[in-house]
Design a protein around this nucleic acid. Structure first.
Length: 895
RNA sequence: GGGCGGUUAGCUCAGCUGGUUAGAGCACCUGCCUUACACGCAGGGGGUCACAAGUUCGAAUCUUGUACCGCCCACCA
C-alpha cells in the first residue's frame, strides 16, 4: 500500500472504509426480533412463496449454496418490498444415502460397523451428527442475511413430513402405482443398496472386450462371445443369437458347455441380439443384466445370482467364491486363457454406471424392490411445461425436462439403508401386506391378524421420496392448513441443473397428484460454481470455499453481490478469491457516497418521499431521468429472470451516473460552500431509491444507510425491509435532456483527455474556449460552467459561435464544437501535433467507411430512410471535424 | 449414438428484435494524498467478434457446416 495514500479520515484518524462486521449481526438480530421475515397466512397481501432447496445435512454450505440462496433472498426481499406476503421456508434434507455413507465411513475408522452397532444405536449416532450439521447450515444462512421465515423451518425427517411420506405411499399403493417387484436394479456394492436410474452416473472407462469360446456339447465346434464383464459368465444360463443370423442358425437349440463351471446351457434365438456387433453371439446372464433378464423371461431361463451384496462372488461362482468382482475377473480371465477359451482381447471404451454418492461401479443386480409407476404421474407434469404454466429460466432447460418426462421409467424407491423413512409396509406371516406408518392397531386389521405378529419392511425409502413432497409437506399437508391455503403453490424454485430430474421434475408430479396444483410456476436454473481454473467446486476436490470465510473477510453483502455479478445468466461462474473484491469495493462505494450525502445534510432531516419539481437544475433532472430508466430496466430484467443483468444495471447507475457524474457535478467549487439545496434534496431522494433498489442484493449496508437517512439507530423501529420498492411513472425520462448532458460530458471528457495527454499538472487551471456551431450549445455551457468548472479545471469559459483560437493552445474537436485550451508554456508542439494527427487518422478511417456505404446504390435503395439519414449525418460530422482539425494542425505547424 | 450450452480485449463476461467508432470489470501503462471513497479519481493502450460458406444493401448478431471446450441423456453385449 502506498504510504501517501489516504487510508484514514483526516479529522478523526479512523479508517472510513465500510466495516460489515460492526453492523451485520446487529441488523440481522433487529430483523429477527421484529418478526420481519415471518409470514402471516391471514394477511390480505398477495402471497409470494419460495421453498428452499433443502441442503443436505452431509456438509456445511459451499459457494454454490451461497449463490443459490443469494438468488432466493434477492427474489424474496424484492417481493416483500413490493408489498407481497413474502415467505421463504427454510430447512434441510436428511440425505439418506449420502449421510449414511459418511457416518459408516467414520464408523469404519473407529473399527466398527452399523450392523455391529445395531439399527437403533446407529440411527441415534447419525441423528446426532446430522442435526449438528443442520444447525451449522442454518446458521450459515443467517450469516448470509437470508430472510427466511425461521418459525417455519423444516427437516425432511420431522414428524409432520414423515406423515406426508406415509400418506403418499398409501395413496400410491392403493392406486396400484406402487408395487413390489423382483427385478434387475442398480446395486452399489459399496453402499450396499439399490439405486434409482437417476442416481447412477455414467463414466467412461478404458476397458476391454474379452472374446470367449464356448464349446458345443459333444463336438469340437465352439461359439465365440464378446463381453465387457467376463466374470458374469459364471451366471450365464444361455447363449443367444439373432434369429435372422444365418451363420448361427444351426446352433439354435443345441447345448453348450459353459467353460470352467462346465454347466450345460442352451443356445436360443432372440431378436434383441444385433448380428453386427461383436461376434453376433451374446452370453445371457439373466441375474446380472437387464436385457438378459428380459431374454431370460422370454425363454424361461434360470436366473443365477453370482454376487453377494458387497460385490464379492457367492457360492454359485465355484472356486471364485468370496473373491471381489474385479479380482475374480482377473483370475477368471487367466484361467480362460490357460485353458484355451480366450480367443482375444480388444481395447474398448466402456461407459460404466457409478454410484452418485461413493462413485464405485454399480452392478445390475436381481432383487426384490419397491417401485413407483411413473407414466401417469408424468402426464400433467409434461403438460404443465408444454402449455407454459410452468416455465424454466433459461427456457432451454424445458427441453431437458420434457425429454426425461417423455422417456420416464419406473422409480425404484426402496433402499437397503437405515437412515431415512422406513417403508410403511407391515408383513403378516402369510405374506399379506398392510400399509401403515406405525405398527397397525388391532382394530385396523382384518380378523385373524395380530399386530404383534407383523414385521415392518426393513428397508427405507429413497431420500427423494420425501424431497419431492417438500413444497407442500413443509406447509402441513396432508392437513389442509392455513399455510397450505395461503402459501401454496409457491412461486419460484431456484436450483442448479443437476437435480432437475432427481428433484424438480418429481416435485411437479407430486404437486399435481397430491395437491392437485403445480408446486411453482417458475424454475430458475443457475450455473454451477467453478474455481479459477473452471473446475467444479466441491469439498471432495478440496477447492471448495466456505461462505463464512468470505463473510469474515469481506462481509455478507460483498459475498452476495459478488456472486450475483460473477454469475452470467444461465452460465457457470468462475470464482476466485479476488472475485469478492468487486463486491467489497462496490459496497464501500455505496457507504462512501452515503457518508458524503450525510455530511452535506449535516444533521438536517432529509425529505425522502418527494422533490420540489420547481427547484431543479438540468443535472437534477438528468439523474432523475437516469433513475427512472434504471428502475424500468431493473424491473424488466427481473421479469425476464436476468438477475445478473439487473445487478449490473444498478452497479453502473450507482457508480457512473450517480457517483462519478451527478455527485461530482453538484459539488460546489469551493470546499466550504453548501450544495444547492434543491440538488442536495435530489441527491438524497435518489440515494434513498438506490438503497431500496439494492436492498435485495446487499441487505445490510442498505439498511444501515437507510437508517442514517431517517435518523435512526440500528435498534430503532424503522426498517428498509418493507421498502417500498421504487416505482416510476417515467415522467422524468427525457431523451433530449440526456443528450444535452452528454454534450457537457463530452466537453469535460475532451478537456480531461487533452490535459492528461499533454501532462498538464492537475493543480494548473486554465481558461476554456469552445467554438460552437449552434448557439444553444454555448448557452448550455455558459449556463452551467459553475457546475463543471472543477471537473474540467477551468477558470474562465469563452464560448460562442465566433470564438477564435487563442495561440498557443491545445485543440480537440467534438461533434458540434471546437475546444481550445490555452496552455502557454505547457504544450510540447510535437506531442500536440501527434495527438491531432492521431485523431485525424481515426476520423479518416470512419469517414471512409461511411462514405463507402453512402456510395453504395443498393444501400441507398434498400435501407430505411432513418438509417440513411443517420449515415449522412455521420459523414457530415466526420468531414466537419476533419476540416477543423486540419485547420488547427496548420496553425500548430506554423508555430 | 442422441440432445443442450459455449467460443467477443491477457482473464471473466455484456452486446435483447441485424445498421454502435464492438463495451464493462479485473489485469496492464501514465498522472493524481482533487472539498465521500487509494476498496479511490482522471486519462490511455489492447479485439480480422473460433473457422468456412450462405442469406442480406448491411452480419459479433440470422442460416448451414466444421473445429475445439463443457454439460446432460442412452440397455448394443
Amino acid at each position: 500500500m502506498n504510504s501517501m495514500s489516504k487510508e484514514n479520515d483526516t479529522k478523526t484518524g479512523k479508517s472510513t472504509a465500510y466495516s460489515p462486521a460492526e453492523v451485520e449481526d446487529r441488523l440481522y438480530k433487529k430483523w429477527l426480533d421484529s418478526g420481519a421475515f415471518v409470514g402471516n397466512p391471514k394477511s390480505s397481501k398477495k402471497p409470494y412463496t419460495i421453498v428452499i432447496p433443502p441442503p443436505n445435512v452431509t456438509d456445511v454450505l459451499h459457494l454454490g449454496h451461497a449463490l443459490n440462496n443469494s438468488i432466493q433472498d434477492i427474489l424474496i426481499r424484492r417481493h416483500r418490498m413490493m408489498g407481497f406476503e413474502a415467505v421463504w421456508i427454510p430447512g434441510a434434507d436428511h440425505a439418506g444415502i449420502a449421510t449414511q455413507v459418511i457416518v459408516e465411513k467414520r464408523l469404519a475408522k473407529e473399527g466398527t460397523t452399523r450392523r455391529e452397532m445395531g439399527r437403533e444405536k446407529f440411527l441415534e449416532r447419525t441423528r446426532e451428527w446430522a442435526y449438528g450439521n443442520k444447525d451449522k447450515i442454518l446458521n450459515q444462512l443467517r450469516k448470509m442475511g437470508c430472510s427466511c421465515d425461521w418459525t417455519r423451518t423444516r427437516f425432511t425427517l420431522d414428524e409432520g413430513l414423515s406423515r406426508a411420506v406415509a400418506e403418499v405411499f398409501k395413496h400410491l399403493y392403493e392406486k396400484g402405482w406402487i408395487y413390489r417387484g423382483h427385478r434387475i436394479v442398480n446395486w452399489c456394492p459399496s453402499c450396499q443398496t439399490s439405486l434409482s436410474d437417476d442416481e447412477v452416473e455414467h463414466v467412461e472407462f478404458d476397458s476391454h472386450l474379452w472374446y470367449i469360446r464356448y464349446k458345443l456339447k459333444g463336438s469340437d465346434e465352439y461359439l465365440t462371445v464378446a463381453t465387457t464383464r467376463p466374470e458374469t459368465m459364471l451366471g450365464d444360463t444361455a447363449l443367444a443369437v439373432s434369429p435372422k443370423d444365418m451363420r448361427y442358425k444351426r446352433f439354435v437349440g443345441k447345448t453348450i458347455i459353459l467353460p470352467i463351471l462346465e454347466r450345460e446351457i442352451p443356445v436360443v434365438a432372440d431378436s434383441y441380439v444385433d448380428p453386427e456387433f461383436g461376434t453376433g453371439v451374446v452370453k445371457v446372464t439373466p441375474a446380472h443384466d437387464p436385457n438378459d433378464f428380459e431374454i431370460g423371461k422370454r425363454h424361461d431361463l434360470e436366473e443365477i445370482n453370482i454376487l453377494n451384496t458387497d460385490g464379492s462372488l457367492n457360492e454359485n461362482a465355484g472356486k471364485f467364491k468370496n473373491l471381489d468382482r474385479f479380482e475374480a475377473r482377473k483370475q477368471l480371465v487367466d484361467e480362460l486363457s490357460r485353458k484355451g477359451h480366450l480367443e482375444k482381447i480388444d481395447k474398448y471404451k466402456l461407459a460404466a454406471g457409478t454410484c452418485y454418492r461413493c462413485h464405485n461401479v454399480v452392478e445390475p443386480y436381481l432383487s426384490e424392490q419397491w417401485f413407483v409407476k411413473m407414466s401417469e404421474l408424468a402426464q400433467p407434469a409434461t403438460a404443465a411445461v408444454k402449455t407454459g404454466s410452468l416455465r424454466f429460466h433459461p427456457d432451454y432447460w424445458s427441453k431437458t425436462y420434457l425429454h426425461w418426462m417423455e422417456n420416464i421409467r419406473d422409480w425404484c424407491i426402496s433402499r437397503q439403508l437405515w437412515w431415512g423413512h422406513r417403508i410403511p409396509i407391515w408383513y403378516a406371516e402369510d405374506g399379506t401386506m398392510f400399509v401403515s406408518m406405525d405398527r397397525p392397531k388391532k382394530e385396523d386389521l382384518p380378523d385373524g391378524y395380530n399386530p404383534e405378529d407383523l414385521t415392518q419392511d426393513d428397508d427405507v425409502l429413497d431420500t427423494w421420496f420425501s424431497s419431492w413432497l417438500w413444497p407442500f409437506s413443509t406447509m402441513g399437508w396432508p392437513d389442509n392448513t392455513p399455510d397450505l391455503q395461503k402459501f401454496y403453490p409457491t412461486k419460484v424454485l431456484s436450483t442448479a441443473s443437476e437435480i432437475i430430474f432427481l428433484w424438480v421434475a418429481r416435485m411437479v408430479m407430486a404437486g399435481y397428484e397430491f395437491v392437485g396444483e403445480q408446486p411453482f410456476s417458475d424454475v430458475y436454473i443457475h450455473g454451477t460454481v467453478r474455481d479459477a481454473n473452471g473446475i467444479k467446486m466441491s469439498k471432495s476436490l478440496g477447492n471448495g470455499i466456505d461462505p463464512l470465510e468470505i463473510i469474515e473477510k469481506y462481509g455478507a453483502d460483498s459475498l452476495r453481490i459478488s456472486l450475483t455479478l460473477a454469475t452470467p445468466d444461465g452460465q457457470d461462474p468462475w470464482i476466485s478469491k479476488n472475485t469478492f473484491e468487486i463486491g467489497r469495493n462496490f459496497v464501500n462505494k455505496l457507504h462512501q457516497v452515503s457518508r458524503f450525502v450525510m455530511m452535506r445534510l449535516d444533521g438536517r432531516q432529509p425529505v425522502l418521499d418527494r422533490i420540489d419539481e420547481n427547484d431543479l437544475v438540468i443535472f437534477d433532472r438528468w439523474i432523475l431521468s437516469r433513475l427512472e430508466r434504471t428502475i424500468r430496466t431493473v424491473d424488466r430484467n427481473f421479469a425476464e429472470f436476468r438477475l445478473s443483468a439487473a445487478t449490473k444495471t444498478l452497479y453502473n447507475f450507482v457508480w457512473n451516473d450517480y457517483c462519478s457524474w451527478y455527485i461530482e457535478l453538484i459539488k460546489p467549487d469551493q470546499p466550504g460552500q453548501e450544495i444547492r439545496p434543491g440538488s442536495l434534496n435530489v441527491a438524497t431522494y435518489v440515494l434513498d431509491k438506490i438503497v431500496k433498489l439494492l436492498h435485495p442484493f446487499v441487505p445490510f449496508v442498505t439498511e444501515r444507510i437507510y437508517l442514517d437517512l431517517v435518523g435512526q439507530e440500528i435498534e430503532g423501529e424503522a426498517t428498509i425491509v418493507f421498502g417500498p420498492w421504487p416505482t416510476t411513472d417515467g415522467r422524468f425520462i427525457d431523451d433530449e435532456l440526456e443528450a444535452s448532458l452528454e454534450q457537457i460530458q463530452a466537453v469535460v471528457t475532451a478537456v480531461r483527455s487533452m490535459r492528461s495527454e499533454l501532462n498538464v499538472p492537475p493543480g494548473k487551471k486554465s481558461d476554456l474556449y469552445v467554438q460552437v456551431d449552434d448557439p444553444t450549445f454555448a448557452e448550455l455551457l455558459q449556463g452551467h460552467i459553475e457546475y463543471f468548472r472543477s471537473l474540467a479545471r477551468v477558470n474562465d469559459l469563452h464560448t460562442g459561435t465566433r470564438i477564435k483560437r487563442p495561440a498557443p493552445s491545445a485543440t480537440a474537436v467534438i461533434s458540434g464544437a471546437e475546444i481550445f485550451l490555452p496552455l502557454e508554456g505547457l504544450i510540447d508542439i510535437e506531442v500536440e501535433r501527434n495527438r491531432v494527427e492521431k485523431e485525424l487518422q481515426n476520423l479518416a478511417v470512419q469517414l471512409e467507411k461511411v462514405s463507402k456505404k453512402l456510395a453504395n446504390q443498393d444501400f441507398l435503395a434498400n435501407a430505411p430512410a432513418d438509417i440513411i439519414d443517420r449515415e449522412k449525418a455521420k459523414k457530415a460530422d466526420y468531414q466537419d471535424r476533419i476540416e477543423k482539425l486540419n485547420k488547427n494542425l496548420e496553425q500548430i505547424m506554423g508555430w
